[in-house]
Design a protein around this nucleic acid. Structure first.
Lengths: 223, 223, 223, 223
DNA sequence: GATGAATGAGCGTTCATTCAT
DNA sequence: TATGAATGAACGCTCATTCAT
């Protein structure tokens, strides 16, 4: 919820609180409507009027909650980035920041993120690409943070084992590569016209490939 | 050159031949102009009039050579796909379709494709994404062929060694993963505001990571 | 204060009186805020929301005190017209309704009105022009009254001297002309990007020119 | 005609010349339509669609010939300024740049400009005022040139007689004052709801008033 | 009285596409 | 073939105004 708040929450009357809740609800309703339409028909193929109709509000309301159309997309992908990092990060930590955790986190990406939220996948990987510098800048930030997360995870894993995984930039390149794998595998299989039924098998293959790459490096540097 | 030819080349007069040459030249001029503008300013931020101006032709001329604006983008990315497959494929074959060749092909991707043709990178990976179903369909075809190429290469490498690399779908997933790596590494480093100077080092890191992943799988299945 | 009063002042309780005062205060606050914004950014470039923000009230409050946006402008220029007539008229009378008084009144126009209230100048002469028939009608009334004032002054001056200043319509034309001088001189020098420092010298020149014109007519008709 | 010309006139084919003529015709048709609507209903009360309808072209055509809506108004008042200066200037010169010529020029202003082109009066004096900085800047230029013209005329007249008319800035103030007279007299009588029938009488009164003012100054400085 | 979220008609503007020449 | 003027639907966006609270 990023709409400017007029008052502190604790100094609010009950009716003011209810209005505040309704405001947040509306914001979310518009966001959800936009997510559906952008993912389904594409960002450029969706007009603000369509978003308003889908959310059952006026076009003016969209501009009350968002600066402009691009802002809707930006808020959407920011939320997705946050959700993705949180969910996958949790899983990694739950397994003690080990390579097994890394693997499990990868599987969670497929199981919880891609399968359950295909529209999020479409938005972050397809619809938000090539939409001008403003959106691109936000996209870059999100991917940079995901990269940093993975890089951090790789460092934690190796440190725990007392091993070394090449130099710093190399680790970053590996992190970027891993994101590339996650991105394209889902783009390829999930966003195609006939998505296969056994995406989890595909996810497992992808994860085991990438884990293999990481282990190989560990082998090489710490025989 | 995909404009339908009214006559066979061998039954042409000299002036007809000259016109034919000029026609092809014009087609390419428009394509080049569009490539520059799409990569620089974005597909949606570029109007047909701008393309015509940049190519020093009329807007009508653009519609003589291309069905519509999307068609220009499609021809562009088709050419890029062809060029990429050819150049990288050659390198693989030159080295006897071995894993070393696979590695060299990867390095050629960075050295010859990304560094020398950053605008092609922008077009195929960024500007052609999220531009509606028509473009998406062509993009899918291109990526499918690249996938098939890599899959074929992996099969050739393992067969040569008399080894086995898991089942068929798994190999495809690995091929898709490898494309993902190539895609995002370049997107991340080359298409950012401040592209680093030593992209080849980055490319080497990425290639060695992905080769490692492949070798690990070979190790596991053929110890 | 033109908001309709619900009660007579003398039948009010103390708290009602306080509320009345606050109400008038608010009315004036909004008017002042609007004056600043209209003069600075232009009538059309100023939104009701901006006025409300500047006055630190809600948009609804603006509509409680004023019929609509045009009404704010109308009240503003009505006040300015009143103020101008009062201040300049006073000066004329103070000098015994003579031609010297006429001159002094002209100088007061520059010294007290234009220099001290440049935003009033912008509103009455620039921003209220060309804003539709409703505003135009009010503007006409104001200028008509100013014209009548000047015409009356000219008649008084000549009558006092026992002289004749042409026929009635001619006097009106002269009155209108004089207003034109006062209007454009200020518009030209005060409302330009680089207003000169010595506007009073300019004012003196303008006044002496116009007085000269009046005297010439007196000479001609009463040699 | 300010639309960019593709070719030199002398290197044109007959059909190209005809097209050129049609283009200019169209430009003028749009301009005339806009003039009518702006003068009648006001600049802000006129939409681009209305202009297009009135000119029997598409909205797109308006934007082919003009940068935007404000540009239409600007071209309009620039033309009016040019026309006014030319017509009035001619008259002054025709009478040998004398004070009689100055008077005649003033009468021509009323007889030829105001009476015959009331819509031009409305545009230059009413509708172009208070329409934002862009239009205001152009308006300033026009009025500055008119001022310079009158100032120049006054200097010529006095020099011819071997007389002196105060200092330079004073002359400019008088020029500005004279413009003010011409402006407001027409605004007052012509743009009112019930314009009087004998505007020429009014014009004569205004002119003789202003000539009187000028002569008085000459008397004072050269007794 | 006062608020400010919500409305929705209306606007200026763009631009892919067409077609007479 | 080539032109470029012309189209007009569609779009993003604004903002004066209203009204439930």
């Amino acid at each position: 919820m990023k709409v400017k708040q007029t008052k502190q929450k604790n100094s609010m009357s009950k009716s003011a609180l209810r209005r505040q809740r309704e405001k947040e609800l509306r914001y979310q309703t518009i966001l959800d409507a936009a997510a559906r339409l952008f993912a389904e028909n594409g960002y450029h193929q969706t007009s603000v009027e369509q978003i308003a109709d889908e959310a059952e509000v006026s076009t003016g309301a969209v501009y009350f909650y968002f600066k402009n159309k691009a802002d809707v997309l930006i808020r959407l992908i920011e939320d997705i980035g946050l959700y993705l990092r949180k969910r996958v990060g949790e899983e990694f930590i739950k397994h003690g920041s080990t390579i097994e955790g890394f693997k499990e986190a990868g599987l969670v990406y497929f199981r919880e993120f891609c399968i359950k939220h295909p529209e999020k996948v479409a938005l972050i990987f397809r619809e938000s690409a090539g939409q001008g510098p403003e959106v691109e800048a936000v996209r870059k930030k999100i991917f940079d943070k995901l990269t940093a997360d993975i890089k951090g995870a790789l460092v934690r894993i190796t440190e725990k084992k007392g091993l070394v995984l090449k130099d710093d930039t190399s680790i970053e390149v590996i992190a970027v590569s891993i994101i590339g794998i996650y991105e394209r595998v889902v783009y390829h299989y999930q966003l195609s016209q006939n998505p296969p039924e056994d995406i989890m098998t595909i996810g497992e293959d992808a994860v085991s490939f990438l884990i293999g790459g990481v282990e190989k490096l560990l082998d090489q540097h710490n025989k």
